[in-house]
Design a binder for these strands. Structure first.
Length: 222
DNA sequence: CAGTCTCA
DNA sequence: GGAG
């Protein structure tokens, strides 16, 4: 059953069963074969993220010395991002409450020890759509706060199969990943969703977003 | 510009 | 965990 952590911030524990998780993982593996994970870098400083990333869908989120942006092609291969898999689109239809389809699915790969500092998802022109997060693999300690970075924060454990919707008043809240937890930390067998791609004990997170304004002309990025 | 980091 |  869903838990409303804050207005517009909905946690769906165990939303994806084992079969759905396997199907999603297989789809993600196929995407990563065509769009290999990239190590993003901080704008200006070039400091690498610990998380590795890829994308599927018409647009993908990338970060390098030039800044954050969405672009239609892989930054290293130059190929268009792979199409959004059916399992991803179905999750959006089930959980987003949004009629227009997602335009970007960012794939975050967390090896053990990887973290993601508190940040906002604010590179999208259309903020009326929620961000939908799906978790695979190892559990993670997820932290969320408010609209201001200095707002008080709380943390929850995000597990394989969990979905999290950040929408409405929570669309721009700060959030991050404090740490990847040992797979055996809780009951439930360790799942390695992407063997050969993600180290054992790692986590894969998918975030689905709407990027462009409803009326935007193709080729023009707000 | 920033989803970085380290210090405390 | 909060600040810079």
């Amino acid at each position: 059953m869903p838990v409303e952590l804050a207005p517009g911030l909905i946690h769906h524990p165990g939303r994806l069963d084992a079969a759905a998780r396997r199907r999603l993982a297989a789809d993600v593996a196929a995407v990563l074969a065509a769009a290999p994970p990239v190590t993003p870098r901080m704008p200006r400083t070039g400091k690498p993220f610990s998380v590795r990333m890829s994308n599927c869908g018409p647009l993908g989120w990338v970060s390098d010395r030039d800044g954050y942006r969405y672009q239609p092609h892989h930054p290293e291969t130059g190929a268009p991002w792979p199409a959004m898999p059916a399992a991803v689109l179905e999750a959006w239809e089930d959980l987003s409450g949004h009629t227009a389809p997602p335009e970007a699915c960012l794939i975050n790969l967390y090896a053990p020890g990887t973290r993601m500092g508190l940040h906002q998802d604010r590179d999208e022109a259309d903020l009326s759509a929620p961000v939908l997060s799906l978790s695979l693999g190892a559990p993670a300690l997820f932290r969320y706060g408010g609209l201001r970075r200095s707002d008080p924060t709380r943390s929850i454990r995000l597990m394989a199969g969990d979905a999290l919707v950040m929408g409405g008043p929570s669309r721009l809240i700060h959030h991050g990943v404090d740490r990847i937890l040992p797979a055996g930390d809780l009951l439930g067998a360790a799942e390695d969703p992407l063997p050969g791609i993600l180290p054992a004990g790692g986590r894969c997170n998918l975030t689905l977003r709407r990027v462009t304004q409803p009326g935007a002309v193709s080729g023009v990025q707000a």
